[in-house]
Every structure is written in C-alpha cells, then in structure tokens.
Design a protein around this nucleic acid. Sequence first.
DNA 1: GTAGTTGCAAATTGTTTGCAAGCCT
DNA 2: AGGCTTGCAAACAATTTGCAACTAC
Lengths: 160, 160
Amino acid sequence: MVQVIMGKHAHSHAIDATAWLRQNGLRATHGRIAIVQLLDNSSVPLTLADIHEKVRAEGCDFATVFRFISILEEKELVQRVAWIDGTTRHEIRARDGHHHHHYLICRTCHKVEPIDECVVERFESQIAKERGYAGLSHSLQLSGVCPACQKPAAKTRKKP
Amino acid sequence: MVQVIMGKHAHSHAIDATAWLRQNGLRATHGRIAIVQLLDNSSVPLTLADIHEKVRAEGCDFATVFRFISILEEKELVQRVAWIDGTTRHEIRARDGHHHHHYLICRTCHKVEPIDECVVERFESQIAKERGYAGLSHSLQLSGVCPACQKPAAKTRKKP
DNA sequence: GTAGTTGCAAATTGTTTGCAAGCCT
DNA sequence: AGGCTTGCAAACAATTTGCAACTAC
C-alpha cells in the first residue's frame, strides 16, 4: 500500500462511474464500478494488489482487476506507470480540470507527494523538433528522503 | 536486448574493474569484474537478464547477478531505473567525466538515444528546498515515435 | 585459515489463462 | 436470451533464498 499526501488536485466530486463506463462502451458491473471509483479518487498510481485489496470486500476477484485494467489500458483510459521501486502501477488518464503531474517519493517511508508543476513540457517540444520524434510523452519521478525520515528514530521508516 | 545509439559520452577508456571493486570494499571475483565492465561500457541501463546473458559465458549465474546488483544498489554505486516498458533496469552511477543523462525511446522500434541535457536539475534543488527532501535523485524518460518509424513501411519496427 | 561469495535448485511471489457459471443489457 | 464478464483454480513466469562447495584475501 501507499501513503498519500493529498495534492491540490484531490477532488471531492467523484465521477459517475456507471455513466463513464457506458460512455466508453463498457458494461457497468459491480466490480468495475468499484475499480473506477477507486482510480478516480486516488491521487497516486496504484498497483493491481492495491486495487484488489480495496475492492475484494465487494467480492471482486484479482483476475477481474487484472483483466479490467488491461482493457482500460488498451482503450487508453488508464496509463501504466513503471514505479521507481520496480512495481507497475496504474492511473486514470487526465480528465477535465486535471492536468497530469509527477511524483516525489520518499525512499525511506515510501510516501508519495504529487508535484503539480511540469518542467519537462517545454523541453519535450524542443526535443521533438530537434530529433523529429512524434507523439512524445514522458515519465518523471523524483525520489529522496523526506523531512520526517531524516530524523534518527523516524517512526515512518519502512522496509526497502 | 536493447538497441543503442552511442551518445557523445560513450568512452573508450574502460575503468579498472578490479581496482574499482577494491576501492569500494568489495571482493574482486571473476563474475563481478565481468559485470562491472559490462555496466561501465553500456550507455543505457540494463535488465538483470541482459546482464546475465552477457556474463553467463564466464560461468556467472543469474543468482550472482541478482545478488551483486543488489549489493551495488545498497551502496548506491548503481542506480535502479523503472523503464517505460515495465522492466527494471540498472545503470552505474555517474563517474568522473560522465554526467548523468536521460533517454529518448522509440515506442515502435525500441531504439534508445541518450539525451545529454538535463532540465530537471534546477527544478530538483527547488523542490528539495521547498519540501525539505534530502538526497534527491530523479528518473526521466521521454518516449515517442522516431522519424524512421513514422514512415509507413518502417523496417525497424518491432514487437510491442 | 576464514569470511565472503558462488552455483545449483527449490521456494516464493507475481502474472496470465481456461472454463463453467452468472450477470448486464 | 445471448454474449460479455466473473470467480476459481491451475499454469506460467519472474524474483528471491538456503546451503554446501569454493575462492579471494
């Protein structure tokens, strides 16, 4: 699991998961609705295990999480993120009023803070022009040791 | 495996792997020397499988690669990189005359080009100051479709 | 000599698939 | 009703560990 510090873009208005699914040509089942709501409410990318842990209460199997996330990624509604700790995570694509952002991760307690600014965008267009690449996208993660974990007997410390 | 375009920083002078190991308090065994030389010569991060493939000829087992890379990462001599395709890769940390760089990856043919400039560095110190993080490092990858792959019958195209 | 390191193989963990039963439209 | 979706369990793949033999110092 992942500790989260809510960024400015945490939003109180959940999307209507059922409508969203139908709009995208997907059947609205109990488990899928739970998964979509979870992704929509999370300000950080989640692993399949994270998602399963939260929706198993609804009787939603791991295989369902796996297959449904695969479908969402094929349709490019969800994006796969290679996390610095080697896990593969998944986040819903930017919706209205959300722009994409990056993450600051504590190497000790694994806390994740979203970073709103994106310094890379201008650089990206420059590279596109100089090297002739099309459809550029990027992935940026910063990691370091957070203030709490810099104190000797930090209580937040976790396993590698 | 990974296709590589050599960047300006490809270097002909290999480091003395044995000396480097001893300087860092590590025993210089046959397998370790081969692994260090390989990492030192590569201009892109490698997976454990990539490394094993190259050093198995020296009779070096996968478990040795796994454990030795873990040791190097604990000592922060090697850095782990979450690659865009979900694989975990490893690269030796910047040495004299090498500054760290980032990568531009073609989503079609998987070609990797190093990028020398780093736009993130100034931003990094700003974040360190604002949020009190120590020992910041970052990982940035750009991906897109290279000029060759934008042509209809691109011969360089590869499997996803 | 001795502590650290290795190869081998097994254990563990994570990912993916097949299939009969169930649910959405 | 009918096809898409699910849960379960098994298959497959990747990562990690135990241990006796070996090697560097």
